[in-house]
Design a protein around this nucleic acid. Sequence first.
DNA 1: ATATTCTACGAAAACGTTTTCGATACTCGT
DNA 2: ACGAGTATCGAAAACGTTTTCGTAGAATAT
Lengths: 339, 339
Amino acid sequence: MPQKITLKKISKDLKVSVSTVSKALRDSHEISIETRDRIKNYAKKFNYKPNSIALSLKNQKTKKIGVIIPEIVHYFFATVISGVERVANKKGYQVIITLSGESFDKEVVNMEMLANGSIDGFIMSLSKETMEKQDFHHLREVTNQGMPIVMFDRVCNDIPCDKVVIDDVAAGHEAAEFLLRKGRNKLGIISTVDYVNVGRLRSQGFKEALQQRGFDVENHQFLKIEDIDNCEDAIEDFVLENDFDSLVAVNELFAVTASKALQKAGKNIPKDVAIVAFTDGILSKYASPTLTTIGQQGEEMGGIAAAKLIEKLESKHLDNESYETVIVKTSLVERESTP
Amino acid sequence: MPQKITLKKISKDLKVSVSTVSKALRDSHEISIETRDRIKNYAKKFNYKPNSIALSLKNQKTKKIGVIIPEIVHYFFATVISGVERVANKKGYQVIITLSGESFDKEVVNMEMLANGSIDGFIMSLSKETMEKQDFHHLREVTNQGMPIVMFDRVCNDIPCDKVVIDDVAAGHEAAEFLLRKGRNKLGIISTVDYVNVGRLRSQGFKEALQQRGFDVENHQFLKIEDIDNCEDAIEDFVLENDFDSLVAVNELFAVTASKALQKAGKNIPKDVAIVAFTDGILSKYASPTLTTIGQQGEEMGGIAAAKLIEKLESKHLDNESYETVIVKTSLVERESTP
DNA sequence: ATATTCTACGAAAACGTTTTCGATACTCGT
DNA sequence: ACGAGTATCGAAAACGTTTTCGTAGAATAT
């Protein structure tokens, strides 16, 4: 038996008006106890649930939040989603997810699709291509329409919105400082190309830490990976041609690739080369040896982003035009790859 | 400047009726070319986009599909989502994701929230708790209302719907057979508790392969993990107390845990013990040694599930009451953990 | 000149709610 | 018995669309 049950159907069956049914179900004192019960029993019997589309249209809010991320098969982003979903659900919101696949065009299209009333606000991390182009017109259009955005991780400063990030410079600093304190003095870093903020900023912190300790910073200490899917050869060359006693990698993948290349060449981790990675994901926990990492707290970031967005949504009346940038603390977890 | 632009606003500004605006934008011949152009220019200038909520209400379809999975920080499920999103997007659908967290109650709640008009159909994989309770009333309620469901991986047979699975029995068989052909004859399997279908079925295929080759199947060859988060001790005991020359694990995590325990005990992989895992994820590719796995083709499963659901949605008129179970081929990829 | 067909537009219903505003009939106080 | 108050309900608008139908005037045909 198909047939969704609606107020109208109930009203017809029970020979009362639609408004009476609506009021009865919301326990209005305008309706007599007897009719109230009659209607509520009928509704329960046929498992009536108000149609959320109709409610959205009436209330001009959907109780849904849109998330746009570059990739989902990616530990960090998956944890962020998990955090977003957790707090959104707790507050009665649902989460619509779209993937940009690191493509600017797809990011724009997805954003337009969602901005037409489907959602109340955005949580997003920019695609690589968007970062490269520095074209943010689609974001501006959305904010101009009064729809709030919360950005995380890969953010831009041209758009008025809340942001949730980690202090990448400080984290890069911490990674280098950690190794220096362990007595290492020939450090290398494997990073991404510069237009990816997180890579650039972590490298910058790394460099600062070295300079503060009076080290000269040489070019050969920096490897910038262009194509993350084909990084093995570049990393292998980098770690073998230079005589490092320690390495920082801006993600797990670079770290474990370096680790394996070094072990293949007969080096011992951490005795010969110590390694600190970013993103405390599953690889770090299960690699051999396990990797010391600086966690990005994706779950926490997602939760904070969702909380901030919902806060903005529900205080919309008082034109809250102040924006905040939350900096989430990183946490270094020591494992076998450092002494 | 906030203010969403609507048909009504355009009609007021241009001093025509709402219906005229609607028709003009859809290029109806009922409207003269001049007014059509006037309206279309105005609409483009103010970047008019039809409100999707209003359309959903009118058309009685949302062009959204709901996905319920147990966890998203999980390689297999993330790849499925990725596949779902890819084909759904291509066909003009959006994806709403909710997580059950392996909890029956949350699965029910999420399902009810989505079933009230938010979406046109479901794609889902059951939570562990649901599998254990064998309580599917929430699924039945949804299908009874005429909303189609496509289930994948963790499915149940009590509900009339399309399904997308891998042939777990055949895959378990293949894993065992592969090791037997390599000359191994002391095989063990690390699986999950029996109410998780995939674990049970893979174990069954494993057992059949051994029996067909004339082996006695002993209890000590089977380990069934209850708590996946604290499996290390159980796995370590299992692999060290028995004298296996090869192991099958129903997921990457069990496999790499076993691998590390064995190596810690001085065994060589694959010389002393060969390992075949399920789920061709990131761990298998980066573990040491890398793991031979039977891939679950999550991306493909997700794509197929989405395609089948959308097909059902768009042929709804002819009461298509036949249901199909698609069996996706697994693919064994050989790596270092087998000789 | 009259009847017919086009052309170009508007009115209204429908989708499922909630809410405001009446409206009816009854009770009560005087 | 009459006005005021109360209890109980219904009509209608609104959210933003699309679509069916109606209609006015103009053009054409007889």
